[in-house]
């Protein structure tokens, strides 16, 4: 019966689209737990959680920005630069609270600037945030005077490294931020407006959605999240250094895209991004435990991303 085949196919495609990443992550988890010594241990999981916390924070809000129809490459620059501002304040005043506050405000301001560039001046978001990245990196070199910065007191390092119930504060903060982002996207008017804006901008505008404001807000929130991630990272390593290293944003983007959030906007979910982040973390954790050459790790990671994007394109066509 060709009828049934078609129907089943359609359902399979929809299922793959929605839950494929969860199934694959679970399979990988079971595989690693069964075959790899040292994987299924409490310590290993705590480590993975702690390592992933910065990625999860940024990836949650990156998911929102991409659903609204925009890319933000400047996440790396904010991640690098915001802690330099925070440490400058910490060194000058000794107040960690003030330092964190200033760091996050810098991130929000950088996000607002991105929002302005994209919504007011109508610059393509990929190109626009690439340009602002260099400005933000530059600001980092200026504020730090091109040198490595360390906190003056020893409270700063506790931001990320304090343990509650055996789990680091960085992990707890990440959990809270992820929950906030997920609620924002699925349970508020703002979340619906994000989906609508990314789904069909003109239709959203005619339905009374202030499209520019929605998009700018996604940039501001993402800037704040990237700054928080950067501060946690600097607290963990008890230092911060100016650079123009773009690698963080690619880790973040990989999680979002492997998680099946549509690059075209209008579709995606935070939980899928988070699942994908863990899939990638398990993958590299497994590689490390098996002591596989990092060069091979890269090759395989690249293939995984390509596969994810390919499957996305394929299901789009089938379901379309």
């Amino acid at each position: 019966m060709p009828l049934l085949v078609g129907d089943k196919m359609q359902k399979l495609v929809l299922f793959a689209r929605n839950y494929g990443i969860a199934v694959i992550t679970l399979l990988l988890f079971v595989l690693l737990a069964a075959t790899t010594d040292g994987f299924a241990t409490e310590r290993n999981f705590r480590n993975i959680l702690d390592q992933q916390s910065t990625v999860l924070i940024a990836a949650s809000f990156m998911t929102i920005a991409i659903i609204a129809g925009n890319f933000d490459v400047s996440v790396s620059a904010v991640f690098v630069t915001a802690p330099l501002f925070a440490l400058t304040v910490e060194n000058a005043t000794g107040s960690v609270t003030l330092a964190v506050l200033v760091g996050i405000i810098v991130g929000l301001a950088m996000g607002a600037f991105n929002g302005l560039v994209v919504t007011r001046f109508k610059v393509n978001s990929f190109i626009g945030t690439l340009a602002t990245s260099f400005m933000f990196f530059g600001a980092g070199y200026l504020i730090s005077d091109r040198s490595l910065m360390r906190p003056a007191g020893d409270i700063y390092q506790q931001i990320a490294r304090t343990r509650y119930f055996g789990i680091t504060s960085a992990t707890w903060i990440a959990i809270i931020v992820v929950i906030i982002a997920a609620l924002l996207l699925s349970r508020t008017r703002f979340g619906r407006n994000v989906f609508a804006t990314g789904g069909n901008q003109e239709a959203a505008r005619l339905a009374g959605v202030n499209v520019s404001r929605v998009q700018a807000t996604t940039f501001i929130l993402l800037g704040g999240a990237a700054a928080l991630a950067g501060i946690l990272n600097s607290s963990r390593s008890i230092s911060a250094q100016p650079s123009d290293d773009f690698s963080f944003v690619f880790t973040v983007l990989t999680a979002v895209i492997v998680g099946g959030t549509s690059i075209a906007g209008g579709q995606g979910a935070i939980w899928r991004t988070i699942t994908a982040a863990f899939f990638l973390a398990f993958l590299s954790n497994g590689f490390n435990l098996h002591q596989i050459d990092p060069i091979w790790q890269r090759l395989i990671q690249g293939m995984v991303i390509l596969l994810a994007v390919g499957v996305d394109a394929w299901t789009q066509r089938r379901a379309g």
Partner: peptide, 16 residues
């Protein structure tokens, strides 16, 4: 082009 978010649900399209 101007009315619907085609990939979104009826629910979201109607209530937007």
């Amino acid at each position: 082009d101007q009315g619907l978010m085609l990939s979104r649900s009826l629910l979201e399209n109607v209530s937007l």
